[in-house]
C-alpha cells in the first residue's frame, strides 16, 4: 500500500518510496593483447560494479522531480529498477504501492517509461496502428481509445502525422507520437529518460509544455532524467543529484543554485565614466571599462548593494543574473568527483 502521511489538514501521498536501494553487476574484465585474449578465454576474470549504492528518497504524488548526474552515475539503472525492468540487488522499492520487480498488471497500467531515441512505434506503419494495438493491450474500448487519441493528439499538435508511416516522420514528430503511444493508457507515474535527446529547440519546448500540461491535467508524478538543464529548469521543482550510485543532493533547484553560487552577477552601464577603485566595497569586479562594470555581489547583500549602486552612480542599465546552471552543475559534479 502507498504510504500516506497527514501533515495538518493536507494529505501528502508518497507515491515512490526507495529505501537502501542497491544494484551491482558482475562484468568480465579483459587485458589487452593476445595473451589477455587467451587468458580471458581460459580463466575469465570478473569484477563487481556497484551501479547503485544504497539510495534513499521519496517522491510525492504530482511532483516533477529531476534526476541529474554525469554519465554512468546510475540514473538509468535506478529508473529501470523503479519501473520493474531490472531487479534490485538489495533494498526496498514501492511505486504506487507496488513492488516494481513483480510487474503486476495493475502496476503496469499505472506507469510509463519513455526513453528518448528508443521507440515502440512500428517503423513501417503509421503511428495510429501502434496506438490501436496499445489501446487493445490496455483494454480500452474503441470509443475511449479514439477520445484519448484525439485529446492527447490535440495537446501534442498531432493530426495527419498519425496516419503517415513512422519512417516518414521527423524526429520531433516521432517523439510526440512516442509520447502519445506511451501515455494512451493514461499512466499516473512517468519515468522519462532523456525525452528531448536530439530534438531541436522548438521540439524540446513543445515536449516540455506537453509534460507540464499532462502533469497539471492528470496530476501525474514525473521522474525525469536529462542532461539538458533546460528540461530540468523548466519542469522540475526538485532535483536529485546522483553520482557513482549515490545521491549527493535532494532538494529544490533554487537552493542548489544558491548553495553552488553564493554570488550573483550584476552588469551595470553608466552614463559617465568611473574609475575601477570607486567600486571597492561593492563586491568583486570581474569586468571593467569606463562606462561598464560587472560585479559579483553576495546574494545576502544584493538588495542593499544595488540600492547603494543606484544612489552613488549614474546608471543607465542594470542586469542581475545567475551563472549558467550548466556551469554550476558541472562544477558540482567536479566537486563530487574530487570529494
Amino acid at each position: 500500500m502507498s504510504i500516506v502521511l497527514f501533515v495538518g489538514i493536507v494529505e501528502v501521498m508518497t507515491l515512490i518510496s526507495v529505501r537502501n536501494l542497491t544494484k551491482s553487476y558482475r562484468i568480465a574484465k579483459k587485458s589487452p593483447g593476445l595473451v589477455g585474449t587467451i587468458k580471458h578465454l581460459v580463466a575469465r576474470k570478473t569484477i563487481v560494479i556497484e551501479a547503485v549504492k544504497s539510495l534513499d528518497f521519496q517522491i510525492e504524488q504530482g511532483e516533477i522531480v529531476g534526476f541529474i548526474g554525469p554519465n554512468g552515475a546510475g540514473k538509468t539503472t535506478t529508473l529501470k529498477m523503479l519501473c520493474g525492468l531490472i531487479h534490485p540487488t538489495g533494498g526496498d522499492v514501492l511505486v504506487g504501492g507496488f513492488e516494481p520487480r513483480l510487474r503486476d498488471t495493475e502496476f503496469l497500467h499505472k506507469i510509463a517509461l519513455i526513453m528518448g531515441q528508443k521507440q515502440q512505434l512500428i517503423w513501417d506503419l503509421p503511428p495510429i496502428d501502434t496506438l490501436k494495438v496499445n489501446a487493445a493491450v490496455y483494454g480500452l474500448s474503441n470509443s475511449e481509445a479514439n477520445r484519448r487519441i484525439k485529446e492527447l493528439g490535440d495537446m501534442l499538435q498531432l493530426e495527419e502525422e498519425l496516419t503517415r508511416p513512422v519512417r516518414k516522420l521527423s524526429l520531433g514528430e516521432r517523439m510526440k507520437a512516442e509520447l502519445l503511444a506511451s501515455l494512451l493508457h493514461r499512466p499516473s507515474i512517468l519515468f522519462l529518460d532523456e525525452p528531448t535527446l536530439g530534438l531541436d529547440l522548438n521540439a524540446q519546448i513543445r515536449v516540455r509544455e506537453f509534460l507540464i500540461n499532462y502533469n497539471k491535467i492528470y496530476g501525474a508524478t514525473i521522474l525525469l532524467s536529462s542532461h539538458y538543464m533546460s528540461d530540468i529548469t523548466s519542469l522540475c521543482s526538485r532535483v536529485l543529484v546522483i553520482d557513482k550510485g549515490t545521491i549527493y543532493y535532494d532538494g529544490s533547484l533554487e537552493d542548489l543554485t544558491r548553495r553552488l553560487s553564493p554570488y550573483r552577477g550584476v552588469k551595470i552601464k553608466f552614463s559617465k565614466p568611473y574609475l575601477k577603485n570607486e567600486f571597492t566595497g561593492f563586491g568583486q569586479v570581474i569586468e571593467y571599462s569606463e562606462y561598464f562594470a560587472q560585479i559579483l555581489i553576495k546574494r545576502s547583500e544584493l538588495t542593499s548593494k544595488l540600492y547603494q549602486l543606484l544612489k552613488s552612480f549614474s546608471v543607465i542599465d542594470l542586469e542581475v543574473s545567475d551563472p549558467p546552471i550548466e556551469e554550476l552543475i558541472g562544477e558540482f559534479y567536479q566537486e563530487i568527483k574530487t570529494s
Binding site: K80, C83, G84, L85, R103, T105, L108, H109, I111, A112, L113, M115, K118, Q119, Q120, N134, V137, Y138
Partner: peptide
Amino acid sequence: EGKLSTLLLQPI
C-alpha cells in the same frame, strides 16, 4: 536494441 524493455512494460 533495447526494444524488449518497452514490450516488458506492457500488460501482455
